[in-house]
Design a protein around this nucleic acid. Sequence first.
DNA 1: AATGAATTAATTGTGCACAATATTGGTGTG
DNA 2: CACACCAATATTGTGCACAATTAATTCATT
Lengths: 221, 221
Amino acid sequence: MSNDENIYRQMLNAIVEHQLPPGARLPEDRLSEAFGVSRTGIRKVLQRLALEHFVIIEKNKGAQVNRPNEAEASEVLDSRILIEPQLIPALLDHWNTEHSERFRIMVTEEKRAEEANQLADSIQLTARFHYELAKLSGNQVLASFVEQLCYRSSLILAAYGTRGSVGCECGDHSQLLDILDQGRKDEAKTWMSHHLKHIKSSLILESKPEENIDFQRLFGR
Amino acid sequence: MSNDENIYRQMLNAIVEHQLPPGARLPEDRLSEAFGVSRTGIRKVLQRLALEHFVIIEKNKGAQVNRPNEAEASEVLDSRILIEPQLIPALLDHWNTEHSERFRIMVTEEKRAEEANQLADSIQLTARFHYELAKLSGNQVLASFVEQLCYRSSLILAAYGTRGSVGCECGDHSQLLDILDQGRKDEAKTWMSHHLKHIKSSLILESKPEENIDFQRLFGR
DNA sequence: AATGAATTAATTGTGCACAATATTGGTGTG
DNA sequence: CACACCAATATTGTGCACAATTAATTCATT
């Protein structure tokens, strides 16, 4: 694996696993010495993360982990609600017992991670489940977008999730596999839709006091 | 406007307007002297364009304008077919006469550009029409994705489009506005779906002999 | 003349140094 | 004591130089 990709993965993981919480500053010096590469390499990675909305870069102020506002949180979830159920039909065209078994193993791991209270693994596995499902639709363009949305969702859960927002899905995922095994297309679509709406409704989107208030926008000018 | 953003825009325009055709090499030296900035700034822009799939960067071989293969072309159009019609309901919630007038002006410009045979303007305006429509749905996350897909479609038309692939849409767009003015939701959805399928079917996706055959994948390893 | 090796040229990858900017802390004055 | 101003520090922005890699050319050999 290329070095850049490796650093990117590590940082993305740290962000979605909430080890780098929303708002955390990411000074290039520290990162460059932590990873043992020059600032040049770090900057490349940070810019990629910024384009994918995982970090925010402000000119002459550096990078920090994105703290999604309520609008962004809502839109990301709405996007998933709009897209993921629509992928079910194409997905079912390729669905077979091998896939089913592979996903059941994933669900087992999800449960294990949840019971062991390993939040990081749990988050990763939940996102992977949805992404791998999207990939089976056969459309890699959409699958990549869904992947990004899933990881952004993890970030959103860090900011607006209740305790258990992540874990409470695990039992659910095996339900979907049952439905898919029976080839019930419409039921699978509505299940996916409900599932995502459930996640969205579990968020606390009331305007909680933001820690970095944009006073300029609020009063000034 | 920031300097980076300016360079990015100019290059993106040149690409989607087919002034930089698919496969064109983009040496950092030439670009840096053309734009009057150092290679550092150019690299940043190139990396952004690469993440958005407008250029391909190969290690130690530099950047070139992406030449989408048939799978990618198909998937991009399918993505639009899946998403854009679904945006209609939310869009209609905000639709009013001001919007209608604004879009009719855009369509008029489209026609003018087409009749004047100004391919570049025509391409830009077509993409803008779909993007601005998507923005009205109120979901900026999805709208940005649609924007990217529209521009990628321009690139695809450069590679697989027939003469008139671009222009033949203009008359159509005003049809949609009529339907929207009448608030006919389902009709607008199916219109959008047909419209995009029509564009996709106008592409020549037969496996034309690829100029760069990947012998590595074919035989090697 | 065709093939293959070796040299040369062109291009990208990476780290460093310095400039530009923002933030923080301190100092002096009203 | 409040306020403005200035200095110091920390951090990012940018360009340049050199290393590493690839592509092109030349040359020798059969």
